[in-house]
């Protein structure tokens, strides 16, 4: 059980780090494109690669952001109800969100499968086989679905979810 716990936590963290590296990649790609232009060179496909990095930065970060409480929701009702009702409400929230995330992941998988099957290539100058960048939707969506299910099980069996607000945000409370 602790092994599974450690593996999951490692996955959320690793995906977050990868997402952060994708932000660096966006920066590098855009700078490279500008420098290329200033020096009369071309960097074909740079905007497309930056777009893929953008998608990867978003999807890979979803689960990590969830566990750090970065995704927002309206919590008026959650804060107003007594503990027992709150737990039921949390089960509804995590259950529904997990359902949406699994639904997303399922269709993302088939979307990527058909991209691969049809040999779909990018229409830009990069001519990338699209299933490669599109896979981040399946991986990131799947991780978000796992993270939501993970939290759902915690609410059901332990009474509390595992979302911890980020320390960075607490600096606002000075």
């Amino acid at each position: 059980m602790t092994d599974l716990r450690k593996t999951l936590d490692f996955l959320y963290m690793a995906a977050g780090v990868l997402a952060a590296l994708c932000l660096v990649a966006i920066l590098a790609l855009i700078v490279a494109q500008m420098v290329a232009r200033w020096t009369g060179e071309i960097f074909p496909g740079a905007p497309d690669y930056a777009g893929y990095a953008m998608a990867a930065a978003s999807f890979l970060a979803f689960a990590n952001a969830l566990n750090h409480g970065a995704h927002i929701r309206v919590s008026i009702l959650l804060n107003a109800v007594p503990a027992g009702t709150r737990r039921l409400l949390e089960i509804w929230c995590f259950g529904l969100a997990a359902a949406v995330a699994w639904y997303f992941t399922y269709y993302a998988y088939w979307f990527v499968y058909w991209s691969w099957k049809f040999n779909e290539v990018s229409q830009g100058q990069d001519a990338t086989a699209l299933w490669i960048p599109q896979s981040v939707m399946v991986i990131g969506g799947g991780l978000l679905a796992i993270a939501l299910t993970d939290n759902l099980l915690h609410v059901i069996f332990k009474g509390e979810h595992r979302i911890v607000r980020d320390t960075v945000d607490e600096t606002f409370e000075v």
Binding site: R37, G40, I42, F43, P44, A46, Q123, Q125
Partner: peptide
């Protein structure tokens, strides 16, 4: 001349005419 390119054809056109393709 800085020439707007948006695909391989337009990039190649720039190259063959000695223009600088910019995306």
């Amino acid at each position: 001349v800085k020439f707007r390119s948006y695909n391989n054809t337009t990039s190649r056109l720039a190259e063959l005419t000695g223009m600088l393709p910019v995306t």
